[in-house]
Write a protein that binds this DNA or RNA. Structure first.
Lengths: 112, 112
DNA sequence: GGCTACATATAGAGAGCCTACATGTAGACT
DNA sequence: AGTCTACATGTAGGCTCTCTATATGTAGCC
């Protein structure tokens, strides 16, 4: 998976993974890996700053917890985050439609 | 269309538009606008540097021409560019598959 | 003379993802 | 006791791409 390709779509992935249950950063990375069949194995240096950015934007809220002697910062979707996720999903659909229509290989000469 | 979303996919778009016929920069912008139904209206500051980058990479070759008193730099796909386009197309397919699978909204609690 | 369409080009800004590094706990194995 | 792996979070800096803004010039119409 090319790094640039992901750009601008990571937010949607993170919000989507948090849709039905709160998770902490490490668990989010694992969830993304699972849901993508191993294709997405994102480094912590990508995930943690992104989560903070989304929290600053008001889409996520976080709380600290200690489980088995280890500290976790657990993130959950806010109302605004839920709305944002819906918007990102529809943006994703139009995005793929547009790019696919341009990439469509079946373009034999239109004249003749 | 968000600027970040496009990142990493522009190359494929450019190569695709040049697949069946050479075009100059201005015509490429118009072709993208047409094929995307108006959704893609990319600025010259995006297109021209990208074309040069692709030429430097060996995917495109260019020649100057004068048409109606105006100078055009016409780009065409090279063999390497054709191969790259094929690769980009398959990368696009796997990319959308992966992201869509993570974004899939139908994830009602797996237990119960 | 001024406007629009055609046509190319570059400098600099902005933003996001990644690499690399830093820190620490828990548990298993030797 | 020492080492290793998994778990867990975080930041600094770099890289690269796209966009904004600006510059330059021709052709044709009003």
């Amino acid at each position: 998976m090319n790094a640039d390709a992901l750009r601008g779509h990571l937010d949607a992935l993170l919000l989507s993974v948090l849709e039905h249950e709160p998770r902490h950063g490490y668990a989010i990375i694992e969830a993304l890996r699972e849901r993508s069949g191993g294709a997405l194995d994102l480094p912590t240096g990508t995930i943690y700053p992104a989560l903070r950015r989304l929290e600053r934007a008001g889409y996520l809220a976080s709380e600290w917890a200690t489980v088995g002697g280890r500290k976790r910062r657990t993130y959950r979707l806010t109302g605004a985050g839920r709305a944002e996720l819906a918007g990102e999903r529809s943006a994703w659909t139009s995005f793929t439609t547009v790019i696919s229509s341009v990439l469509d290989p079946s373009r034999p000469d239109p004249s003749r």
